[in-house]
Simulated assay, not measured.
Amino acid sequence: MRVLLALFFIVFVYGCEDTKNTSTEKEKTTPTSETGEKKEDETTADTISEEKRIEYPKITDKNVVAFFTKYGAKNPETKVKISTRLGAIYLELYEETPLHRANFIYLVKRGYFSDTFFHRVVPNFIIQGGNSDLPSTNKKRADIGAVYLLPAEINGRNVTYGSIAGAKEYRENPDKKSAPFEFFVFLGPQTSTAHLNGNYTVFGEVTKGMDVVEKISELKSDEGEWPLENVYITAEIIK
């Protein structure tokens, strides 16, 4: 009887320690919002959770247009809030670029942007987001569809202060397709847009928070323009 009681005590103690260690580890790795709190908007959390339960096909260059045409019709949202440790940035996505809009909304609802960074900062030019050096980012891309590109939706809208545009996988891109997982916000002078206009799809604009964009652009970075201190992103649908 004493032996059984001793064994029960050992199992109980080690079980509690394991739970505590797991909880502590999560606290260390969870990025904070601009307020320093680790609380996620409940509506957004529910939306992401529901979206992850839906069995979507992997997106490829063959089904990208059909997929986002259908998805966009069922998910008409255009307003997104991006939170960082330096503050919040509010975006409005254009209906006139339906594939890019639907793609961005899809990524937000799938929780893709969580644990990605603003990974490129160039003062008086751009900040670029949607990537990270974490294994979780590559896994998310693989789950969604790592190899698809978005067809260009260039419609005569030029890049201006606060424009949101699709990044590119490579510069020599005659079809001017966008990389689906990364975007940039332009904050430079109009004299810096000559090589951007007509070559990148502008699919939205910042409606509030350009002061935050400016702060992020001025962070110290390495030779690859990657901030020395990571700027985590969380994104949520406003409406």
Rank of each mutant, 00 (worst) to 15 (best):
S114D: 15
D115L: 05
T116Q: 03
T116L: 05
T116I: 01
T116A: 08
F117G: 00
F117Q: 02
F118G: 03
F118T: 12
F118Y: 10
H119F: 07
H119E: 08
R120T: 14
R120K: 15
V121A: 13
V122S: 14
N124R: 12
N124I: 01
F125K: 05
F125M: 07
I126V: 15
I126P: 03
I126E: 07
I127C: 08
I127N: 03
Q128W: 01
Q128K: 10
G129M: 11
G129S: 09
G130C: 02
N131F: 00
N131C: 00
S132A: 12
S132I: 09
S132R: 09
D133C: 06
D133S: 15
D133Y: 11
L134D: 13
P135W: 10
P135F: 11
T137E: 12
N138I: 14
K139L: 15
K139D: 13
K140D: 00
K140R: 13
K140S: 10
A142C: 03
A142Y: 12
A142N: 15
D143T: 13
I144A: 06
I144Y: 02
G145E: 01
V147P: 00
Y148S: 06
L150T: 05
P151F: 04
P151T: 07
P151N: 04
E153H: 10
I154T: 08
I154W: 09
N155E: 12
G156K: 11
R157E: 13
R157C: 07
R157W: 00
R157V: 13
N158Q: 15
V159N: 02
T160Q: 14
T160D: 13
T160F: 08
Y161Q: 07
Y161D: 05
G162W: 01
G162V: 05
G162M: 02
G162P: 00
I164H: 06
I164N: 03
A167C: 07
K168D: 00
K168P: 04
E169R: 09
E169T: 09
Y170K: 13
R171N: 11
E172S: 14
N173T: 07
N173Q: 08
N173M: 07
P174S: 14
D175L: 13
K176M: 08
K176E: 03
K177A: 04
S178K: 10
S178H: 06
A179I: 00
P180T: 05
P180A: 04
F181A: 05
E182Y: 02
E182I: 04
E182A: 10
E182H: 07
F183H: 14
F184V: 11
F184M: 08
V185T: 13
V185P: 00
F186L: 12
F186C: 03
F186V: 07
L187Y: 10
G188K: 06
P189H: 14
Q190V: 12
T191G: 15
T193R: 05
H195Y: 09
H195N: 13
N197Q: 10
N197S: 12
G198W: 04
G198H: 08
G198L: 11
N199I: 04
N199T: 12
T201A: 05
F203N: 08
G204S: 09
G204D: 07
